[in-house]
Nucleic acid binder design. Structure first.
Lengths: 173, 173
DNA sequence: TATTGTTATACTCTATAACTATA
DNA sequence: TATAGTTATAGAGTATAACAATA
């Protein structure tokens, strides 16, 4: 998605340093920035044998002991079906336990183990330190504004999406 | 990845409206915001039967007539191998042509057709209008600052990634 | 009837490796 | 030797549909 500036080696009059119409788009810039941040996160998490999704699943379980798989899936915005393998992996690594839910025999109650809690704490710390290095040039106020902007845009984007699906609905009938 | 606030229906004391440690992370917030923007983009592009990658490929070809497939792949930061199917699709839909490169018989020169140019123009317009609706609450200065922040963070993140791989290198030897 | 966990399936995206034809 | 395009393949990520057990 990103139009990077380095020309492929040996390409004499390459499409280097070019601007593209895509530069004007927030989506394009968000993707580029996220890719760069995510590349760092992947390196950070590799030492804990975690992926982004297992990392965030573990974090959510730590913070919500006893939650059901369906609740975890909703929190991570992933499908229930896709949550199975993730929970399987965390359970097989003894980072969490799958206990029967006391008042609903369909459900599991997910709980972190001591080992899982420690791993989560170490991963969060490493992630925090990595982001701090990347964002060392940003003061608190600038960061706060940036986070607020991102939140506001997320909200506006979902509102626009709602409007569009309503428009579609009214078109259909 | 996102810990959304809506509780699943029928979950009485659900993990609703909760904060998570992940909220402190730029990566997490970028992903949430990008997901929301991308959901809109996907809806926008569906009417043109385009995906994000075919959309950006078409745009890059429009802006760099005659470029090689390898150059397109580099611009999109995708693998040469993965570019084949994308170029195939655009060619089969007669949105672009694959001409032999005049001075290198290994290469193709990718060129947009009139139909492709029109489609690209319409898609860019629809994308622009959608983003404008989402960002209607942002004035030009705020947007400019946001884009600048994103660019700066991307740069810092890749620099940090370089440092880390160098650190790894020096460890190995 | 609806929900929980599960399985199967499929499509996209990404990454690697090997092949051919050219340079 | 190296590069351009191609093919095959495999791993993630994501989405849908169906099933058994339970509510």
């Amino acid at each position: 998605m990103t139009v990077e500036t380095e020309a492929p080696a040996g390409t004499e009059d390459a499409i280097a340093a070019e601007a593209t119409a895509l530069d004007m788009f927030l989506g394009y810039n968000l993707k580029r920035t996220f890719n760069a941040i995510h590349a760092n996160l992947a390196v950070t998490l590799r030492q804990f044998d975690l992926r982004m999704v297992t990392y965030s699943a573990l974090t959510v379980i730590v913070e919500n002991e006893g939650l059901r798989q369906a609740e975890l899936a909703a929190a991570l915005k992933i499908d229930r079906g896709n949550a199975v393998a993730i929970v399987d992996e965390l359970e097989q690594r003894k980072l969490i336990t799958r206990d029967r839910h006391p008042d609903d025999r369909r459900s599991y109650a997910l709980r972190v183990s001591e080992e899982g809690r420690k791993l989560c704490r170490r991963a969060l710390k490493a992630d925090r330190e990595c982001e701090a290095r990347i964002l060392s040039g940003f003061d608190a106020e600038r960061l706060h504004k940036l986070f607020a902007d991102l939140k506001e845009i997320e909200k506006a984007a979902f509102e626009e999406l709602d409007k569009r699906s309503q428009r579609q609905d009214t078109k259909v009938f």
